[in-house]
Structures are given as structure tokens and as C-alpha cells.
Design a protein around this nucleic acid. Structure first.
Lengths: 222, 222
DNA sequence: AGTGTTTTTACGGTTTATCGTAAGGATATG
DNA sequence: CATATCCTTACGATAAACCGTAAAAACACT
């Protein structure tokens, strides 16, 4: 099994459970950092002392507080860590479930696995650690692999996002029409905006603009 | 110490830590529910068997999944639970840090304590449980106690939340008027609803209903 | 009961959203 | 080049939101 593992997780209520899993797997050296910066320094130090980490388990979002930090997200930490130590195995353990974000983790950061925090995630995390150690292929949950393949959300273009964002800022259709004309965004006739919003309302099954913004806010689109 | 405690928390990575705390406090009966509905049924059953819970520790937000649920948030669960068992002690353990929302928990749901999930929250949770058991006053963070004491500001009541929720579901004012009449919520004249929404718009500096919902969504009020 | 105050509701006018229809323009295709 | 098709814009009618004012009801106080 892995000898030396680093956990990057700000919430103590979660890191305790992760450490417990690692103990159950009889991992000798378990280190834990509550800030991305601390995690990065530990990795650096490990390399410097010729006792590098075998595995990094990292969260994505970290609560900001009084401390000034160089890295503010798991993505930034992993990117920096991989530059320093390209062979470092990485598992992301996060509540994030937006498929485009998870996709980019595999594609851009070349993480080894993604485990979603959920109702039964600790056993999955445990199994995933074992699989990574054995160089087995990591299975994605049915739900997640579906999400990764699902392109439906990507039909929504940046045009739609801009439109929804303007709406959510309280602009009227006529206002948005003027805004778009100034920014050179087309189409910008208020009638076209109307039609586009109507398509979005049908797509998201929204009764009216208020409903539409509530739904897309929930989806994290705006 | 408390005899029988219920934990309502969907993430297993967190509930494990909470249960551990309860074990350290030598609590005999520790029950755990991953869904609000399950938690509610357990409370109901406890009352029915004359073995009611002494304490409820609940999260606020629960991941939606395939299951159809009657209650989808900690607020709804606590509201229903308190109707059933008004003397039930309640601690909310959540990552929420908007003072509005926390304030409304104390004022509208009369929770006993609020513990914010953070980098050092497990020891705080432990101490809080002991304080509640001893009927000691629970200390709040400076920021939070300020927000709670401040009554000069506009009070966001459960009425406003209900109103905003209906709006965000796409109902028209006339619809909401009818809904409120059926539910016995007063005032319910469409003109009164209009006035109340207008107050909210002034308070939150919103241009229109769409803007208002976008803002309150961001604040986590709805 | 009577008076003043606050809350709730009703009403009318204006703006914006909503919905259907149609005209104008660009592009593709034969 | 002619025609079809799609995209964009315009227009008009109705519903809903928006805003101010005033009546009605509920409440508090003497």
C-alpha cells in the first residue's frame, strides 16, 4: 500500500473521515493540510528531503478566511504540485458535480480519480485508493460517467449565459438590447432576445423569467 | 449527557465525524439519517414509542437525487420536527455563513445553536453539545451575534422566505395570493404581496423580481 | 364607544413581459 | 437566377409587473 499520503481538505469534519480511511488501509505516514499553501509546502519539503508523497487526496474548494494564500483552489494546488512532482498520484474528493469542471480535471490536470462527496462516498474513496495503488482502471460511477458523456449542458452557449447574466442583474429586455448593441453581440433585437429567452424557458421548463433565473442559478450557470 | 441523538446529514464523510464526537461524549443511542424524510420518520417513531430524541443535529442542504422527498432542506425538516416535538433541542451544523439565513434559523425555527462547518468545527460542535445539555448559553461569533441583535434592520421572516420561494417557482402574484389563501397565510391580498415584495426589492436593492430572486438565491435565502 | 394609527386590500395608470404572427434579410440549394 | 429555408426583427394584443393613492379593516389606546 501507499507509504506516504497527503490530504488537502479544509473542513475538519471531513478530513477526520478521510484520515480514518487511510488508517484502515494501514498507511504509515498520513499528513493533512487545511490550506492549499500548506499542502504545497509539504509536497515541496517531501521532495527536498527525498521522502516524496505517493498520493495526494485533495478537495477543490477551500473556505477563504483571514489568511492570504497563494493558491485558493484545489485545481491550482494540483497544477502546481504536478509541475513539481509529475508522477504524484492524485485523487480529487469534492462535492462538485458540474460535468464540465470534472471533465477538465481529467483532461487538463490528469488526475487519477474523481470521487464525489455524497451519501456513500467513504467506501468508494477507500476502494478507489486501493485501485489506484494497484494501477487498476478507476471506474466512474454510472451517474458520473453519464454526466461526462452528456453534452446537453454544452448546447447552452456563451450567448445564453450572457443573456441570463444580464437578466439576473435586473435589466429589462430593451436594456439588454442596447447593452448587446454596444458590445457588438448579435442578435440584439429585443424580439430576438425574447425568442431566445423563450427557448431557454422551454428547455428548462420555466414558467417565466423569474423562474428561469431561479433554475439556472441552481444549476450554477449564472 | 443526552441519551438519544439523531444526526441528519447526507454526506457520509461528515456524518462519520459527527457520530465519532457523539461516541466520545458517551451517548448511548446515536441514530443517523441521510435524508430529511428518514430523519422525520425516526423522530415520529421515537415519539410514538415514547422514546423521543433529546437532540437533533442537522445539516441545512441535502443533495437531491433520484429519491422523491417530502422535505428537501434542513429548515423544512426542523420546522416539521418542532411541530411534532416542540421541546426537541436542535443544533444546525452547516457550511452556510450568511448571517441572514442563520438569523432566521434562530428567530423563526428557534434552534438552540448554530455551528459552522470549518477548519476547527468538530471541537466546537463537541463543546456546543455539552453546553446545550447543561442549558448554558451558546456563544456566537462576534459577527453573528451582531447580526442577531440588530433589529433596526428589516426582518426577513419566514413569510418573506415563503413569498420568495413561490416567486422563484414561477408563480404569478395572483397565483401566490390564491396559494396563501389556501394555506391560511396572511396577508394574502395580491396588493399586499406586491407591497411586501417592494420592500424586499428596496432592501436588497433589486430592480425587479428577476433581480430580486437572483440576489436572494446568491444569499442562499431561497 | 371613540379616536388615531397601522395593516391590509382595492383600484387605476404605466411599463414590461409574454405570445402569436408576419415582414425583412441572409444563406443555401437546385 | 429563382426558390426555399432559416434567422432576425418588427408589430400588435394581452397578461403581469410596477407604482402611487386611497379606502377598508384591524388594532391600540383612552
Amino acid at each position: 500500500m501507499f507509504k506516504k499520503v497527503l490530504v488537502a481538505e479544509d473542513l475538519d469534519s471531513i478530513s477526520i473521515s478521510i484520515v480514518k480511511v487511510l488508517e484502515e488501509l494501514a498507511i504509515l505516514e498520513i499528513h493533512h493540510a487545511k490550506y492549499c499553501d500548506d499542502a504545497f509546502l509539504k509536497i515541496k519539503k517531501g521532495l527536498h528531503n527525498s521522502t516524496p508523497y505517493d498520493l495526494l487526496i485533495s478537495d477543490l474548494s477551500f473556505k477563504p478566511d483571514h489568511r492570504e494564500n497563494r493558491f485558493s483552489s484545489g485545481e491550482e494546488l494540483i497544477e502546481a504540485a504536478k509541475k513539481l512532482q509529475p508522477d504524484l498520484k492524485t485523487i480529487v474528493f469534492s462535492i462538485e458535480d458540474k460535468s464540465f469542471r470534472i471533465k477538465s480535471l481529467f483532461n487538463n490536470l490528469e488526475i487519477n480519480a474523481y470521487v464525489s462527496k455524497g451519501r456513500n462516498s467513504i467506501p468508494i474513496l477507500k476502494k478507489t485508493i486501493q485501485r489506484i495503488y494497484n494501477n487498476e482502471e478507476v471506474k466512474l460511477s454510472a451517474e458520473l460517467s453519464l454526466a461526462l458523456r452528456d453534452n446537453s449542458l454544452f448546447e447552452i452557449e456563451s450567448y445564453d449565459i450572457a443573456l441570463l447574466k444580464s437578466l439576473s442583474k435586473g435589466s429589462t429586455l430593451d436594456n439588454i438590447s442596447s447593452e448587446f448593441k454596444e458590445s457588438g453581440i448579435v442578435p440584439n433585437g429585443s424580439s430576438s432576445l425574447e425568442k431566445r429567452i423563450n427557448k431557454l424557458k422551454i428547455y428548462f421548463k420555466a414558467n417565466n423569467n423569474v423562474h428561469l433565473i431561479a433554475i439556472t442559478k441552481d444549476l450554477g450557470l449564472v
